[in-house]
């Protein structure tokens, strides 16, 4: 049976982002809708060429639904809805983003200046990878080579190369530039 196709062709939805009235197609994420009107929400794991992943949590925003429910959501995976009120730069979300930068310190510092982070209060250097998954997802979703994967779970989770892929990976190298910490390039 035909599944209802959601996404770009859906009907338009009206919402308010940082006080600005925005219209976006049903199924669009809040992040994309915001960027469409020039509101930049910081991201780490987001890349328009791949499915949103929702892992880094940098893009968290405060929302209030039309029925008055307030909460924090990851804007890259939260779809727009009629009457939604979004605030992208509140004290709460700034605190979260600051903490993320601190926790990933020093492997990812893209927004460090903007959020005033110059060091971390935590034990650092436990991993040189932020596990944003850009390389893994690019290889699987865009390149369809499936040479990278996440090995293990929890704090042991690490990206890994399928054995024997080093040469082809070096030859391709397309994901190297996606990586903020240079992890893949050094492993090939």
């Amino acid at each position: 049976m035909a599944e209802k196709k959601e996404g770009k062709n859906g009907k338009a939805v009206k919402l308010v982002i940082d006080g600005k009235e925005v219209e976006a197609a049903e199924g669009t994420s809040v992040l994309v809708a915001a960027r469409g009107v020039g509101i930049n929400i910081p991201t780490l794991c987001y890349n328009g060429r791949m499915e949103p992943y929702g892992a880094c949590r940098m893009c968290m925003v405060e929302i209030e639904t039309s029925w008055g429910r307030k909460r924090l959501v990851a804007s890259c995976v939260y779809p727009v809805e009629e009457g939604l009120k979004v605030q992208t730069d509140t004290e709460k979300v700034r605190k979260i983003r600051k903490m993320i930068i601190e926790l990933l310190w020093p492997s990812w510092q893209a927004y460090a200046d903007e959020y005033g982070v110059t060091s971390s209060r935590f034990k650092t250097g436990m991993t040189d990878c932020s596990l944003c998954g850009l390389c893994v997802r690019y290889c699987a979703e865009v390149k369809k080579e499936n040479r990278l994967y996440f090995k293990g779970r929890g704090i042991e989770r690490q990206p890994a190369l399928v054995e024997g892929s080093e040469l082809s990976c070096r030859a391709c190298g397309e994901c190297f530039n996606l990586c903020g910490s240079g992890w893949v390039a050094t492993r090939c």
Binding site: A140, N146, R147, L148, Y149, F150, K151, G152, A160, V162
Partner: peptide, 12 residues
């Protein structure tokens, strides 16, 4: 099934 999808599970 791509080998990497199997390795993910095998290591998870």
């Amino acid at each position: 099934i791509p080998l990497k999808d199997i390795l993910v599970i095998a290591n998870f």
